[in-house]
Nucleic acid binder design. Sequence first.
RNA 1: GGAGAGGUGGCCGAGUGGUUUAAGGCGCAGCACUGGAAAUGCUGUAUAGGGGCAACUCUAUCGAGGGUUCGAAUCCCUCCCUCUCCGCCA
Length: 426
Amino acid sequence: MLNQRLVRENPNLIARELSRRGMRLDLKGLQVIAQKQKDLEKRRNLLQAEGNLIGKKVGQSIKQGLDPTSKEINSLRQEGNLIKQKVNELDIEEKKAAEILRNKLLSLPNLPSPKCPNGQNETENKEIRQWGDPPIGKHFKNHWEIAESLNLFESERSARIAQSRFVTLLGNGARLERALINFMLDLHSKKGYKEILPPVLVNTKSLTSSGQLPKFAEESFRCADDDLWLTPTAEVPVTSMHRNEIIPSEQLPLKYVAYSPCFRREAGTYGKDTRGLIRLHQFNKVELYWFAHPEKSEEAHDQITTDAESVLRELELPYRVIELCTGDLGFSASRTFDLEVWLPGAGVYREISSCSNCDEFQARRSSIRTKEDKKTRVLHTLNGSGLAVGRTMAALLENGQQPDGSVVLPKALVPYFGAKQIELNQ
RNA sequence: GGAGAGGUGGCCGAGUGGUUUAAGGCGCAGCACUGGAAAUGCUGUAUAGGGGCAACUCUAUCGAGGGUUCGAAUCCCUCCCUCUCCGCCA
């Protein structure tokens, strides 16, 4: 959420920055409402002070022995009633204004960082760096062909269990997924991340706090009888873990690594990535998350990205780092680096991690602050996949495929998987 | 799911309609005392939003939201959460 003071004092700045995202907004109306709310609040406060004074007078008079039914007391009571009535009227108006303001503010995205390059859409993203030698050739198979021949997962029967876009991992497939989750959690834990296994059902407040609601309700699965949703990412429960807290600055940064299954409707992607492990309604993800000091979030952003990259390096998977342009930036992000892994079967780089600096945006929605020298201020939050597990498996299959149909696994994974390769007919 | 007890500052805890401006204690910080410390004493110690150069000051917040009242931590209503016992359950 954007700072309300900014709405009142510099709406043009907001409009200008959001235009970099391709939004054309006139914030004059919003500014008027914000100002109105503040004015009403001021008037109400003054009236309340008057009312408090009368209340005090009545109390003192009675204490001094004045008859509670006397003229003086009764006239004070009348005065008090009058004030109360006025306060109520102001209060109703003020709440209306505050509600409108809040709803509008909650559906405005974050301002892009000054460092975020301008652009209309994903075609204008900037490549930052590349790592590894991407194997190229027509003979490489897609990961679902490999998985099928190795009998790693079952898609058609999964539709029987749930729907399309669900997958059931089998045998070595299930084992590999589990190995990857453990490997990633261990790798990040060793770097000082605290491991979290969060609830995957989250309430409306939590989804609002990290920015998925109110705008993207159609992207999440909702429980019919409860105020609970299936989380689209561990970012949601981890953000809300510290909702309404003040974290002393000497404790920052708080670094968490959270494994969770993630649930997304993937509305509007019919026909896209219908086969394999790339786009599912349920997938596993290991998420990195930082609560950082507001002045140190840029370094934190570099570090969280590097930490996410380390998984790909350990797994010897070629990748590149892309900086998203303003037009491709997510709702809560001010700046984002995507990691894209090379898929030789598909012959493309595919997003496998998104590392975002959300600066104050989520923290303000969640009221997460830090305290330093008696001053409280909103802190910064960052998140990055470390990594999407299903897509990592796809990349391992495509990059590790051998002419004989087996798949060779990277050394780092062997202790976790228990074998150097996945053979045919196992 | 049933019955009962609770929810007050960083923590413990008093407070059942009016000098509560939330007592007292613990913790923490500063100062004094000390060779240094302990002990002791004094002062300070929440959040949000306003006003003021500042000292300071106003408003709200005692689980959340409503209500009664001139005045609510205290009374009423709704909801949430915690604990104990019972039932059910991995």
